[in-house]
Design a protein around this nucleic acid. Structure first.
Length: 585
RNA sequence: CGGGCUGUGGCGCAGCUUGGUUAGCGCGUCGGUCUGGGGGACCGAAGGUCGCGGGUUCGAGUCCCGCCAGCCCGACCA
């Protein structure tokens, strides 16, 4: 493609609302343009990248038993009402009405649609398993769209759904999808981890998120650099942390006045101790009863661990209304011995023989030297605290690190939730209808484009991995401007040689972005850096006179010269191709 | 949902406090001259419902009210 013909220009400055590198660079380089909050147009360069990601995904899905389909984006709300998700999705769904007033939504995901389609085919055990996928636009009216393509309201997603006779069969496909995902993200040159995710209300099922490590990510996950254990922060485990405060004898409890000090930090500062010397007591509503979650003051409660530990009871953090309804529960002065608590769940670090500072269950008072067994009882011990940087890895004991990540994929064993609601049954060997067992597998295709730029850029622009770059080579021709007849002749010769090189490379199957614009060298180089093709070839008057073209590796900055044959046409195409793409001297 | 900030040619901004003729600047765009290996210089030009609506005033980009849009922070860890 010649740049004189290409639509989309570069910007020297990014729009004020672009605040992360990938967002700024994709707009500055002319890959995308914003049309509305969280909604973007894909210009020619961006479209090529998006297509490349989609092609990689498609190839791996096809190779793993997937069959591509396309489901409607406009979906009847009636379908969503059958699973109740028209309610649970709530305002996250874009909704609309047809001329008769019937409700529709723009698909935020497609479990209902695919399950309805499969249900209509009257399948038997002989037809299963089936694995269907689509690469299609999804719509979520996010509370706060931000970070450009990372949290957009319109995004391209690959969603696959598999249907099985039982869980064992589902596991086979799940494993296939899992390894296909690894190959896809490897090809995208992303640094990622498959993390054990929170099981959620479905419970017990396997469930993995794929996280691309990135400081701008919106999710935390733990990652052991030693043994590679990785988990979503909510599902993360850790080895029990030994508590250094174990004492042989603990003094008697003692009341201290802490007027107006309702936070851990305030109390700790007032008493000149560390937050870890305090005990944090958090009130929960557990099936209508009051429950306390008890952890060291420097920790945070892992609500999901609590939910799992108390399942199937429902667990809900106390809100303002709850505190109004329980006037004897003093927010900020709760202690683990509160008489109104029917269940006390404590973190294992709150071990016997340790003493703590806690709320005294009285306004403006705390108590010193409170210890388990003597002063309060614990009804359930679990690992209740959210894992933190430096906690020992549950597998190898080495310190865990907490990293931020971008969720780029999620594989999930759904079970029969949707097949039962939408009566997606198969008939078994005995002719009896059974609900199909389902799995679903998502990849954020447009989000990957952004995640890749986050990982592969420098201060000058994007550095595309070869597999995703819109073009293999950025050809910069610098004919110069000259006065003397000799100089003019050389200049014209360089221009001709550039055209020739462009043609020859294209014929050799190399995709080339050819900067044939009449602009200064500085502009061409700056744009080449910004646009980020993996290889830049520079054909200038000086190099041409010496019979060379310069090759620059965008990512490494490595430069070398490639010899031009007297007649460019005579260069063996395969050799040229290798030399240009691989950088052979 | 709460708080804060912003809205002025395609992009980035100034002007608003203290109302006053023709609304400026940089980048970009178009024409020209020069320049030609890291966003070069100069000359000229086009391009604006100052977010929308109402109000105050002789007069509103500027003050007041309402609305819309966008951005940032927070949204129960006691």
């Amino acid at each position: 493609m010649k740049m004189t013909q290409q639509f989309g220009r570069t910007l020297r400055e990014a729009p004020a609302d672009a605040d992360i590198a990938s967002h700024q660079l994709l707009i500055r380089a002319g890959y995308i343009r914003r049309l509305a909050s969280g909604i973007y147009a894909w210009l020619p360069l961006g479209q090529r990248v998006l297509s490349k990601v989609a092609d990689i995904v498609r190839a791996e899905m096809d190779a793993s038993g997937g069959q591509e389909i396309t489901l409607p984006i406009a979906q009847p709300l009636e379908l969503w009402a059958r699973t109740g998700r028209d309610q649970t999705y709530g305002p996250l769904m874009f909704r609309m009405e047809d001329r008769k007033g019937a409700g529709f939504c723009l698909s935020p995901t497609a479990e209902e649609a695919i399950t309805a389609v499969v249900a209509g085919e009257s399948l038997s055990y002989r037809d299963l398993p089936v694995n269907l996928y689509q690469i299609n636009w999804k719509y979520r009216d996010e509370l706060r769209p931000r970070f450009g393509l990372l949290r957009a309201r319109e995004f391209l997603m690959k969603d696959a759904y598999s249907f099985h006779v039982d869980n064992d069969d589902l596991s086979v496909t799940y494993q296939k999808m899992f390894s296909a995902y690894c190959r896809i993200f490897d090809q995208c040159s992303l640094t990622y981890r498959a993390v054990e995710a929170q099981a959620g209300e479905i419970g017990g099922e396997v469930n993995h998120e794929f996280m691309a490590a990135a400081v701008v990510g919106e999710d935390d996950f733990v990652w052991c650099r030693k043994c590679d254990y990785a988990a979503n922060i909510e599902a993360a485990q850790r080895q029990s942390v030994p508590n250094s405060k174990t004492q042989e004898k603990v003094s008697d409890p003692e009341i201290v006045n802490t007027p107006g000090l309702t936070s851990i930090d305030d109390v700790a500062a007032h008493l000149d101790v560390g937050p870890s010397d305090l005990l944090k007591c958090i009130a929960f509503d557990i099936d209508g009863d009051l429950g306390l979650a008890v952890i060291p003051g420097d920790r945070e409660v892992n609500e999901y661990a609590l939910i799992q530990a108390l399942a199937p009871r429902s667990v809900r953090l106390f809100d303002d209304e709850d505190f109004v309804a329980h006037p004897d529960v003093f927010k900020g002065y709760l202690g683990p011995d509160f008489s109104g608590a029917s269940i006390v769940v404590a973190d294992s670090a709150v071990a016997e023989g340790t003493s703590w500072i806690t709320g005294a269950n009285a306004v403006n008072q705390h108590r010193l030297n409170v210890c388990v067994g003597r002063d309060f009882l614990v009804s359930k011990w679990i690992d209740l605290a959210v894992a933190a940087n430096g906690d020992p890895c549950p597998r190898c004991g080495e310190p865990l690190s907490v990293d931020r990540g971008i969720e780029i994929g999620h594989v999930f064993q759904l079970g029969t939730k949707y097949s039962e609601a939408l009566e997606a049954n198969y008939v078994d060997e005995s002719g009896t209808p059974q609900p199909m067992v389902m799995g679903c597998y998502g990849i954020g295709v447009s989000r990957i484009v952004s995640a890749v730029v986050e990982e592969h850029h420098d201060e000058n622009g994007i550095c595309w991995p070869a597999a995703l770059a819109p073009y293999d080579v950025h050809l910069v021709v610098l004919p110069g401007r000259a006065k003397t007849p000799e100089q003019i002749a050389l200049s014209e010769e360089v221009e001709r040689a550039g055209e020739e090189l462009y043609r020859v490379m294209t014929e050799a199957g190399i995709s080339v972005l050819f900067d044939d614009r009449d602009v200064s060298p500085g502009v061409k180089f700056a744009d080449a850096d910004l646009l980020g093709m993996p290889v830049r070839l520079t054909l200038g008057a000086k190099g041409f006179a010496r019979g060379v073209v310069e090759r620059l590796d965008r990512a490494t900055g490595e430069e070398r010269e490639l010899a031009l044959a007297d007649d460019i046409l005579s260069v063996a195409l395969t050799e040229l191709r290798l030399a240009i793409l691989a950088g052979a001297a």
